[in-house]
Measured scan of single mutants.
Amino acid sequence: VTTYKLVINGKTLKGETTTKAVDAETSEKAFKQYANDNGVDGVWTYDDATKTFTVTEMV
């Protein structure tokens, strides 16, 4: 189990959250659901070296 981080650069929501998951794909699903639940829709990137997802909304 690995800890993954999500950085949110939204128009109205900014911040970070973490989750523990067995792999990046599992954490990505959880993070995308979290973003969707909070009305964040944007461009996703992933940095495997830091286990960090970033979602950026276009303004």
Score class of each variant (00 low, 15 high):
44 W>V: 01
10 G>R: 03
36 N>M: 15
7 V>T: 05
20 K>M: 14
13 L>S: 08
33 Q>S: 09
11 K>M: 13
19 T>D: 05
11 K>A: 13
19 T>S: 08
45 T>P: 00
5 K>W: 11
5 K>S: 05
1 V>A: 10
7 V>K: 07
26 T>C: 07
24 A>D: 04
57 E>F: 06
38 N>R: 14
14 K>Y: 10
13 L>I: 13
59 V>C: 14
52 T>V: 06
26 T>S: 12
12 T>H: 14
36 N>P: 01
2 T>R: 09
3 T>F: 06
47 D>M: 03
22 V>E: 10
53 F>N: 00
17 T>H: 14
7 V>D: 03
19 T>I: 15
21 A>D: 04
20 K>Y: 12
17 T>F: 15
39 G>H: 09
24 A>G: 05
55 V>W: 01
22 V>K: 13
13 L>C: 15
3 T>V: 14
58 M>T: 13
19 T>N: 11
47 D>G: 01
46 Y>V: 01
37 D>V: 08
21 A>L: 03
31 F>E: 01
16 E>M: 10
5 K>D: 02
37 D>M: 12
45 T>C: 08
33 Q>D: 08
33 Q>C: 06
27 S>A: 15
48 D>T: 07
27 S>V: 14
42 G>A: 02
1 V>H: 10
32 K>Y: 05
50 T>V: 05
31 F>L: 05
27 S>I: 08
30 A>L: 15
53 F>E: 00
10 G>V: 12
33 Q>N: 08
34 Y>E: 01
39 G>E: 06
55 V>K: 01
18 T>R: 05
15 G>L: 15
7 V>H: 05
41 D>Q: 13
12 T>L: 12
24 A>Y: 15
14 K>N: 08
24 A>H: 11
38 N>I: 15
47 D>H: 05
32 K>R: 15
51 K>C: 06
37 D>L: 11
53 F>G: 00
16 E>G: 08
9 N>E: 10
3 T>Y: 07
53 F>R: 00
53 F>V: 00
19 T>E: 05
1 V>G: 10
39 G>Q: 08
5 K>Y: 15
1 V>W: 14
5 K>Q: 05
46 Y>R: 00
55 V>T: 02
46 Y>D: 00
57 E>C: 06
35 A>G: 02
4 Y>H: 03
31 F>I: 01
31 F>H: 01
47 D>L: 03
51 K>H: 11
8 I>G: 00
15 G>F: 15
42 G>F: 03
17 T>R: 12
14 K>E: 05
12 T>S: 09
27 S>H: 01
14 K>D: 05
30 A>D: 06
34 Y>V: 05
18 T>P: 02
2 T>Q: 13
36 N>A: 15
45 T>W: 06
50 T>E: 06
23 D>F: 04
3 T>R: 05
48 D>G: 06
19 T>R: 07
8 I>Y: 06
9 N>A: 08
50 T>R: 05
25 E>M: 12
4 Y>C: 04
16 E>Y: 13
44 W>P: 01
59 V>Y: 13
40 V>Y: 05
2 T>G: 08
13 L>V: 12
14 K>G: 06
34 Y>M: 04
35 A>N: 03
10 G>Y: 06
43 V>E: 10
6 L>P: 02
18 T>G: 04
41 D>P: 03
57 E>H: 05
6 L>I: 03
27 S>K: 01
14 K>H: 10
44 W>G: 00
59 V>H: 13
2 T>M: 11
50 T>C: 05
20 K>P: 06
7 V>N: 05
42 G>H: 01
8 I>W: 09
29 K>I: 11
19 T>Y: 15
32 K>E: 03
28 E>R: 11
6 L>H: 02
46 Y>E: 01
18 T>F: 15
9 N>W: 12
35 A>L: 11
57 E>V: 09
41 D>W: 13
53 F>T: 01
58 M>Q: 11
12 T>D: 11
49 A>N: 10
45 T>F: 08
22 V>W: 11
11 K>N: 11
49 A>M: 11
25 E>H: 11
28 E>W: 15
47 D>V: 04
44 W>E: 00
8 I>F: 07
11 K>V: 14
19 T>P: 02
50 T>L: 07
6 L>E: 03
10 G>D: 03
